[in-house]
Design a protein around this nucleic acid. Structure first.
Ligand SMILES: [Mn+2]
Ligand SMILES: [Mn+2]
Ligand SMILES: [Mn+2]
Ligand SMILES: [Mn+2]
Lengths: 220, 220
DNA sequence: ATATAAATTTAGGCAAATCTAAAAATGATT
DNA sequence: AATCATTTTTAGATTTGCCTAAATTTATAT
């Protein structure tokens, strides 16, 4: 219905991301930082999005998505994650290479294309980073958001996703040889710095608490 | 190198299309008509494209692409036709449905994506309408541009492409059941209106000269 | 050669998205 | 409660792409 500009779409997505699933009030500065723009520019856009009834916004108080804004944001996220899946599964890109391309592809307008793409990929529920792909109705598949740092020693787990999907983190765990689906056993946890010794692919090595906190896992 | 806006890309493509392979001088009005815009708007853009050294342009005289402009135009055409092939071959769209989506997808910027897409599709040389896809270096595959109306009676041919790929024409020949690769035999040509009687899929029927003139064929 | 018609450019303006600098509101601190 | 720092908004410009109306150039037809 509402045909949005690429810029408007990116603002909605940013508000959705910052506000989180609980749809918290979002500050002007936080949006400006995420979109690498200036607070004054954000203010202009917030007035416009409010005028289009996509967000709640009160000057100086902050903003949050209204229902239609949230629907749009989730729709863009769906496309982003489907395209990332396509790029990795079908075109053999690495998971650390696909974000920028998906950032463009997510704005392609064609509901039919999105649905056929999903079907072509076998209706995937998670993208290459393990992030859940909302379905056509905007519903996310369930996943336990447990990270590796929450696991007690002597537990076997499977890697389900990454919390931080920055190129830096992805390259780091690629260097360790960790991929989605891999099995990891936690051997011990160091009390001093919460670092852990893990067994992975018949090797034992130490992981920092920070690295562990960015790996989503499922207990086996 | 030169990063072009979506609008600039569409102007270059329009000039390329109108000027043809012989790179004729193109009139301002012709561009305006093709892009559904006004002559004054075109003049503005021509000044800008000349300034970027992508076109030759002299006020009141017309414009033509310079080498870099032509390279860009062919690159966009390559993407357009690769994406159309993807949509038809992989997502099972009809050939009459894909143009508008390709019009968006052709502007996605990633040389690597384009090359991987081409590889994924098996390095296709022709798009779903039979139009040649230039390779990475901008070279088009050869094809005889013979149309069905040029064929003498009692000749067997194969349909290679459509000259007019408007939805109307595509729907018309779809109604006749004609698809790329089909074999057609010309039985006779009516002198009065140059219409022809053809045999196709064990049926005989009459085709207008206009319809025949829009079907590219290869003699067998 | 002049007049008329057609094509094109110029002039002036508007909307979207951005910026910098200044003003105003909010929040934190004594 | 007054002050200071932070956040946010307002004011004023800029760039891109587009428009209409008027002026200009080129082409065509007496
Ligand atoms: Mn991404
Ligand atoms: Mn985006
Ligand atoms: Mn097309
Ligand atoms: Mn286009």
């Amino acid at each position: 219905m509402t045909k949005l500009s690429l810029t408007e779409e990116n603002y909605l997505k940013a508000i959705y991301f910052i506000g989180g699933t609980s749809n918290q009030l979002v500050n002007t500065n936080a949006i400006a930082e995420r979109l690498n723009t200036k607070a004054a520019t954000v203010t202009d856009m917030l007035r416009k999005l409010k005028q289009k009834d996509l967000i709640e916004y009160q000057p100086y108080k902050g903003t949050r998505l209204k229902l239609e804004g949230k629907v749009q944001a989730i729709g863009i996220l769906r496309k982003h994650r489907l395209w990332e899946t396509f790029l990795v599964e079908k075109l053999a890109f690495g998971w650390e290479e696909v974000h920028e391309m998906a950032e463009q592809l997510e704005h392609i307008q064609s509901a039919e294309l999105t649905e056929r793409l999903s079907a072509f990929l076998g209706f995937p529920e998670f993208d290459p980073h393990g992030d859940p792909i909302p379905n056509k109705e905007g519903v996310f598949p369930r996943r336990d958001n447990v990270t590796l740092d929450r696991v007690s020693p002597d537990t076997a787990v499977m890697v389900q996703g990454v919390k931080d999907s920055s190129t830096e983190f992805l390259n780091y765990i690629a260097k360790l040889g960790i991929q989605l689906g891999d099995h990891i056993a936690v051997k011990s946890v160091e009390e001093f710095d919460r670092s852990l010794v893990v067994e992975h692919k018949n090797q034992q090595y130490r992981l920092s608490a920070l690295a562990a906190a960015n790996l989503y896992i499922k207990e086996l």
